[in-house]
Amino acid sequence: MTQATVSLRVPSRSAVLGVFQKYGVYIAIVLLLLYNLVFTPNFFAVDNFRTQFVQVVPVLIVALGMALVIGTEGIDLSVGAVMALAAAVIPLYVGYGLVPTLLIAIGVGAVIGLLNGSMVAFIGVQPIVATLAVMVAGRGLALLIANEQLKSVTSPEVLALGRDSVLGIPYSVLIAAVLVGVVAILVNRTTFGKQLIAIGGSRRAAELAGLPVKRILLIVYVLCASLAAVAGVIGTARLGASVPSTLGNLIELSAITAVVVGGTPLSGGQVKVLGTLAGAVLLQFISATLIKHNVPDAYSQIAQAIIILVAVYIQRGKARVK
Protein backbone atom coordinates (compact mmCIF):
# COMPACT_ATOMS: atom_id res chain seq x y z
CA MET A 1 0.00 0.00 0.00
CA THR A 2 2.89 2.33 0.61
CA GLN A 3 4.14 1.93 -2.93
CA ALA A 4 0.74 2.90 -4.25
CA THR A 5 0.60 6.07 -2.21
CA VAL A 6 4.11 7.27 -2.84
CA SER A 7 3.63 8.03 -6.49
CA LEU A 8 6.10 9.65 -8.83
CA ARG A 9 4.53 13.07 -8.99
CA VAL A 10 5.93 15.50 -6.50
CA PRO A 11 3.55 15.42 -3.58
CA SER A 12 2.73 18.52 -1.60
CA ARG A 13 4.00 18.88 1.92
CA SER A 14 0.60 18.19 3.44
CA ALA A 15 0.17 15.17 1.19
CA VAL A 16 3.45 13.78 2.47
CA LEU A 17 2.36 14.47 6.01
CA GLY A 18 -0.93 12.75 5.25
CA VAL A 19 0.84 9.63 4.05
CA PHE A 20 2.92 9.58 7.20
CA GLN A 21 -0.13 10.05 9.35
CA LYS A 22 -1.80 7.09 7.74
CA TYR A 23 1.07 4.72 7.14
CA GLY A 24 4.01 6.20 9.05
CA VAL A 25 4.26 3.36 11.52
CA TYR A 26 4.19 0.73 8.76
CA ILE A 27 6.76 2.62 6.71
CA ALA A 28 8.99 2.81 9.78
CA ILE A 29 8.69 -0.93 10.35
CA VAL A 30 9.61 -1.69 6.75
CA LEU A 31 12.61 0.67 6.87
CA LEU A 32 13.80 -0.88 10.10
CA LEU A 33 13.47 -4.38 8.69
CA LEU A 34 15.45 -3.35 5.62
CA TYR A 35 18.16 -1.88 7.80
CA ASN A 36 18.38 -5.06 9.85
CA LEU A 37 18.39 -7.21 6.72
CA VAL A 38 21.57 -5.49 5.64
CA PHE A 39 23.33 -4.66 8.87
CA THR A 40 22.23 -7.06 11.60
CA PRO A 41 23.58 -10.60 11.52
CA ASN A 42 21.06 -13.34 12.22
CA PHE A 43 18.13 -10.93 12.24
CA PHE A 44 16.18 -12.67 9.49
CA ALA A 45 15.88 -15.94 11.31
CA VAL A 46 12.66 -17.57 12.41
CA ASP A 47 13.97 -17.80 15.95
CA ASN A 48 14.68 -14.12 16.07
CA PHE A 49 11.19 -13.15 14.94
CA ARG A 50 9.74 -15.60 17.43
CA THR A 51 11.75 -13.86 20.18
CA GLN A 52 10.60 -10.42 19.04
CA PHE A 53 6.97 -11.43 19.04
CA VAL A 54 7.24 -13.20 22.39
CA GLN A 55 8.82 -10.12 23.89
CA VAL A 56 6.25 -7.74 22.45
CA VAL A 57 3.28 -9.66 23.84
CA PRO A 58 2.95 -7.97 27.27
CA VAL A 59 3.28 -4.45 25.86
CA LEU A 60 0.91 -5.29 23.02
CA ILE A 61 -1.80 -6.69 25.27
CA VAL A 62 -1.54 -3.73 27.63
CA ALA A 63 -1.58 -1.36 24.64
CA LEU A 64 -4.82 -2.90 23.34
CA GLY A 65 -6.58 -1.96 26.55
CA MET A 66 -4.84 1.39 26.61
CA ALA A 67 -6.08 2.11 23.08
CA LEU A 68 -9.67 1.61 24.23
CA VAL A 69 -9.17 3.95 27.18
CA ILE A 70 -7.41 6.55 25.06
CA GLY A 71 -10.26 6.26 22.57
CA THR A 72 -12.58 7.61 25.27
CA GLU A 73 -10.18 10.52 25.81
CA GLY A 74 -8.88 8.83 28.94
CA ILE A 75 -5.61 7.30 30.06
CA ASP A 76 -4.75 4.44 32.37
CA LEU A 77 -1.48 4.70 34.25
CA SER A 78 -2.28 1.79 36.54
CA VAL A 79 -1.64 -0.98 34.00
CA GLY A 80 1.85 -1.75 35.30
CA ALA A 81 0.54 -2.01 38.85
CA VAL A 82 -2.24 -4.33 37.64
CA MET A 83 0.42 -6.57 36.05
CA ALA A 84 2.23 -6.60 39.38
CA LEU A 85 -0.99 -7.50 41.21
CA ALA A 86 -1.73 -10.30 38.78
CA ALA A 87 1.82 -11.56 39.29
CA ALA A 88 1.44 -11.32 43.06
CA VAL A 89 -1.68 -13.49 43.24
CA ILE A 90 -0.37 -16.23 40.96
CA PRO A 91 1.79 -17.99 43.58
CA LEU A 92 -1.16 -17.98 45.98
CA TYR A 93 -3.54 -19.83 43.65
CA VAL A 94 -1.26 -21.66 41.28
CA GLY A 95 -2.05 -24.88 43.13
CA TYR A 96 -5.61 -24.85 41.82
CA GLY A 97 -4.47 -25.20 38.22
CA LEU A 98 -3.95 -22.88 35.29
CA VAL A 99 -7.53 -21.86 34.53
CA PRO A 100 -8.51 -20.88 38.09
CA THR A 101 -5.23 -19.00 38.48
CA LEU A 102 -5.82 -17.16 35.25
CA LEU A 103 -9.40 -16.32 36.20
CA ILE A 104 -8.40 -15.05 39.62
CA ALA A 105 -5.61 -12.91 38.18
CA ILE A 106 -7.95 -11.43 35.58
CA GLY A 107 -10.58 -10.99 38.28
CA VAL A 108 -8.13 -8.97 40.34
CA GLY A 109 -7.47 -6.85 37.25
CA ALA A 110 -11.20 -6.39 36.68
CA VAL A 111 -11.67 -5.19 40.25
CA ILE A 112 -8.96 -2.60 39.78
CA GLY A 113 -10.62 -1.63 36.51
CA LEU A 114 -13.92 -1.21 38.33
CA LEU A 115 -12.19 1.06 40.79
CA ASN A 116 -10.60 3.16 38.02
CA GLY A 117 -13.78 3.23 35.99
CA SER A 118 -15.97 4.17 38.94
CA MET A 119 -13.73 7.07 39.84
CA VAL A 120 -13.68 8.29 36.25
CA ALA A 121 -17.29 7.64 35.28
CA PHE A 122 -19.25 8.23 38.46
CA ILE A 123 -17.15 10.52 40.62
CA GLY A 124 -15.71 12.44 37.69
CA VAL A 125 -12.07 12.18 38.73
CA GLN A 126 -9.72 12.93 35.85
CA PRO A 127 -8.44 9.65 34.43
CA ILE A 128 -4.80 10.61 34.85
CA VAL A 129 -5.35 11.41 38.52
CA ALA A 130 -7.51 8.39 39.31
CA THR A 131 -5.22 5.90 37.65
CA LEU A 132 -2.08 7.55 38.99
CA ALA A 133 -3.37 6.97 42.50
CA VAL A 134 -4.20 3.37 41.67
CA MET A 135 -0.81 2.94 40.02
CA VAL A 136 0.97 3.86 43.25
CA ALA A 137 -1.39 2.03 45.59
CA GLY A 138 -1.68 -1.00 43.32
CA ARG A 139 2.00 -1.80 43.31
CA GLY A 140 2.12 -1.27 47.04
CA LEU A 141 -0.73 -3.73 47.44
CA ALA A 142 1.03 -6.20 45.13
CA LEU A 143 4.16 -6.06 47.28
CA LEU A 144 2.02 -6.52 50.37
CA ILE A 145 0.29 -9.59 48.90
CA ALA A 146 3.63 -11.05 47.86
CA ASN A 147 5.06 -10.29 51.27
CA GLU A 148 7.60 -8.23 49.36
CA GLN A 149 9.23 -11.40 48.09
CA LEU A 150 10.11 -12.72 44.69
CA LYS A 151 8.57 -16.17 44.31
CA SER A 152 9.52 -18.78 41.77
CA VAL A 153 6.64 -20.20 39.78
CA THR A 154 7.19 -23.85 38.97
CA SER A 155 3.74 -24.95 37.82
CA PRO A 156 4.41 -26.53 34.40
CA GLU A 157 1.04 -25.33 33.08
CA VAL A 158 1.78 -21.72 33.90
CA LEU A 159 5.34 -21.99 32.61
CA ALA A 160 4.03 -23.52 29.38
CA LEU A 161 1.96 -20.43 28.84
CA GLY A 162 5.13 -18.40 28.70
CA ARG A 163 7.48 -20.86 27.05
CA ASP A 164 5.75 -23.49 24.95
CA SER A 165 4.56 -23.36 21.38
CA VAL A 166 2.05 -24.99 19.12
CA LEU A 167 3.15 -25.46 15.51
CA GLY A 168 6.13 -23.27 16.29
CA ILE A 169 3.98 -20.40 17.50
CA PRO A 170 4.31 -19.61 21.21
CA TYR A 171 1.08 -19.76 23.18
CA SER A 172 1.59 -16.21 24.39
CA VAL A 173 1.78 -14.96 20.80
CA LEU A 174 -1.37 -16.89 19.91
CA ILE A 175 -3.21 -15.37 22.85
CA ALA A 176 -2.09 -11.89 21.83
CA ALA A 177 -3.16 -12.49 18.23
CA VAL A 178 -6.61 -13.61 19.35
CA LEU A 179 -6.91 -10.57 21.60
CA VAL A 180 -5.94 -8.24 18.75
CA GLY A 181 -8.71 -9.80 16.66
CA VAL A 182 -11.26 -9.58 19.45
CA VAL A 183 -10.48 -5.95 20.23
CA ALA A 184 -10.51 -5.05 16.53
CA ILE A 185 -13.98 -6.56 16.16
CA LEU A 186 -15.10 -4.93 19.38
CA VAL A 187 -14.03 -1.51 18.16
CA ASN A 188 -15.16 -1.73 14.55
CA ARG A 189 -18.14 -4.03 14.53
CA THR A 190 -20.03 -3.64 17.80
CA THR A 191 -22.42 -1.13 19.26
CA PHE A 192 -20.14 -0.88 22.25
CA GLY A 193 -17.17 0.07 20.09
CA LYS A 194 -19.07 2.74 18.22
CA GLN A 195 -20.43 4.19 21.43
CA LEU A 196 -16.97 4.19 23.00
CA ILE A 197 -15.60 6.17 20.08
CA ALA A 198 -18.52 8.60 20.18
CA ILE A 199 -17.84 9.24 23.86
CA GLY A 200 -14.23 10.00 23.05
CA GLY A 201 -15.32 12.30 20.24
CA SER A 202 -17.75 14.30 22.34
CA ARG A 203 -18.78 13.06 25.73
CA ARG A 204 -21.48 15.70 26.07
CA ALA A 205 -23.03 14.87 22.71
CA ALA A 206 -22.97 11.18 23.60
CA GLU A 207 -24.75 11.89 26.88
CA LEU A 208 -27.40 13.98 25.17
CA ALA A 209 -27.86 11.25 22.57
CA GLY A 210 -28.86 8.97 25.43
CA LEU A 211 -25.77 6.76 25.35
CA PRO A 212 -25.00 4.90 28.58
CA VAL A 213 -21.80 6.91 28.91
CA LYS A 214 -20.95 5.96 32.47
CA ARG A 215 -21.52 2.28 31.93
CA ILE A 216 -19.37 2.28 28.82
CA LEU A 217 -16.53 4.13 30.55
CA LEU A 218 -16.71 1.67 33.41
CA ILE A 219 -16.49 -1.30 31.05
CA VAL A 220 -13.61 0.26 29.13
CA TYR A 221 -11.52 0.62 32.27
CA VAL A 222 -12.43 -2.91 33.35
CA LEU A 223 -11.34 -4.24 29.96
CA CYS A 224 -8.09 -2.30 30.08
CA ALA A 225 -7.19 -3.58 33.55
CA SER A 226 -8.24 -7.14 32.69
CA LEU A 227 -6.00 -7.10 29.64
CA ALA A 228 -3.17 -5.79 31.80
CA ALA A 229 -3.78 -8.70 34.16
CA VAL A 230 -3.48 -11.13 31.25
CA ALA A 231 -0.20 -9.44 30.36
CA GLY A 232 0.87 -9.85 33.99
CA VAL A 233 0.16 -13.59 33.90
CA ILE A 234 2.03 -14.05 30.63
CA GLY A 235 4.94 -11.94 31.89
CA THR A 236 5.13 -14.03 35.03
CA ALA A 237 4.91 -17.27 33.08
CA ARG A 238 7.77 -16.16 30.88
CA LEU A 239 9.98 -15.20 33.82
CA GLY A 240 9.10 -18.31 35.75
CA ALA A 241 8.83 -16.06 38.77
CA SER A 242 6.37 -13.69 40.34
CA VAL A 243 8.24 -10.40 40.60
CA PRO A 244 5.66 -7.82 41.71
CA SER A 245 8.30 -5.23 42.45
CA THR A 246 9.44 -4.79 38.86
CA LEU A 247 7.00 -6.53 36.55
CA GLY A 248 5.31 -3.96 34.34
CA ASN A 249 7.44 -1.07 35.56
CA LEU A 250 6.99 1.82 33.10
CA ILE A 251 4.96 -0.37 30.78
CA GLU A 252 2.26 2.32 30.73
CA LEU A 253 4.70 4.55 28.86
CA SER A 254 5.52 1.89 26.28
CA ALA A 255 1.84 1.11 25.85
CA ILE A 256 0.83 4.74 25.43
CA THR A 257 3.67 5.20 22.96
CA ALA A 258 2.57 2.17 20.96
CA VAL A 259 -1.00 3.45 20.86
CA VAL A 260 -0.02 6.97 19.80
CA VAL A 261 2.61 5.84 17.31
CA GLY A 262 -0.07 3.58 15.88
CA GLY A 263 -2.22 6.57 15.01
CA THR A 264 -4.72 6.75 17.85
CA PRO A 265 -4.87 10.39 18.98
CA LEU A 266 -4.61 11.12 22.69
CA SER A 267 -7.60 13.40 22.27
CA GLY A 268 -9.83 10.38 21.82
CA GLY A 269 -12.58 9.60 19.36
CA GLN A 270 -10.56 7.09 17.37
CA VAL A 271 -9.10 3.68 18.10
CA LYS A 272 -6.62 2.11 15.69
CA VAL A 273 -6.22 -1.52 16.72
CA LEU A 274 -3.95 -2.63 13.90
CA GLY A 275 -2.00 0.61 14.29
CA THR A 276 -1.52 -0.22 17.95
CA LEU A 277 -0.21 -3.66 16.99
CA ALA A 278 2.16 -2.02 14.53
CA GLY A 279 3.20 0.58 17.10
CA ALA A 280 4.08 -2.09 19.65
CA VAL A 281 5.99 -4.12 17.05
CA LEU A 282 7.87 -1.01 15.93
CA LEU A 283 8.96 -0.23 19.49
CA GLN A 284 10.09 -3.85 19.89
CA PHE A 285 12.09 -3.79 16.65
CA ILE A 286 13.72 -0.53 17.64
CA SER A 287 14.78 -1.82 21.01
CA ALA A 288 15.98 -5.10 19.48
CA THR A 289 17.97 -3.27 16.82
CA LEU A 290 19.63 -1.04 19.39
CA ILE A 291 20.50 -3.95 21.67
CA LYS A 292 21.83 -6.08 18.83
CA HIS A 293 24.06 -3.24 17.76
CA ASN A 294 25.17 -2.81 21.33
CA VAL A 295 24.07 0.82 21.47
CA PRO A 296 24.50 2.18 24.99
CA ASP A 297 21.34 2.63 27.00
CA ALA A 298 21.51 6.41 27.00
CA TYR A 299 21.28 6.49 23.21
CA SER A 300 18.38 4.04 23.12
CA GLN A 301 16.48 6.27 25.50
CA ILE A 302 17.12 9.27 23.28
CA ALA A 303 16.05 7.28 20.21
CA GLN A 304 12.79 6.31 21.89
CA ALA A 305 12.15 9.89 22.92
CA ILE A 306 12.66 11.05 19.33
CA ILE A 307 10.19 8.48 18.05
CA ILE A 308 7.57 9.65 20.54
CA LEU A 309 8.15 13.26 19.52
CA VAL A 310 7.86 12.45 15.84
CA ALA A 311 4.66 10.50 16.43
CA VAL A 312 3.15 13.30 18.46
CA TYR A 313 4.22 15.85 15.85
CA ILE A 314 2.51 13.90 13.11
CA GLN A 315 -0.60 13.55 15.27
CA ARG A 316 -0.60 17.26 15.86
CA GLY A 317 -0.43 17.85 12.13
CA LYS A 318 -3.44 15.62 11.78
CA ALA A 319 -5.42 17.61 14.28
CA ARG A 320 -4.55 20.79 12.41
CA VAL A 321 -5.52 19.38 9.03
CA LYS A 322 -8.91 18.70 10.55
Binding site: P41, N42, A45, T51, Q55, I291, K292
Partner: peptide, 10 residues
Protein backbone atom coordinates in the same frame (compact mmCIF):
# COMPACT_ATOMS: atom_id res chain seq x y z
CA UNK B 1 15.97 -12.01 30.41
CA UNK B 2 14.77 -10.09 27.37
CA UNK B 3 18.12 -8.42 26.73
CA UNK B 4 19.89 -11.76 26.94
CA UNK B 5 17.41 -13.24 24.47
CA UNK B 6 18.21 -10.50 22.01
CA UNK B 7 21.95 -10.83 22.48
CA UNK B 8 21.95 -14.62 22.14
CA UNK B 9 20.21 -14.30 18.80
CA UNK B 10 22.51 -11.73 17.30
Amino acid sequence: QSVTEQLLQS
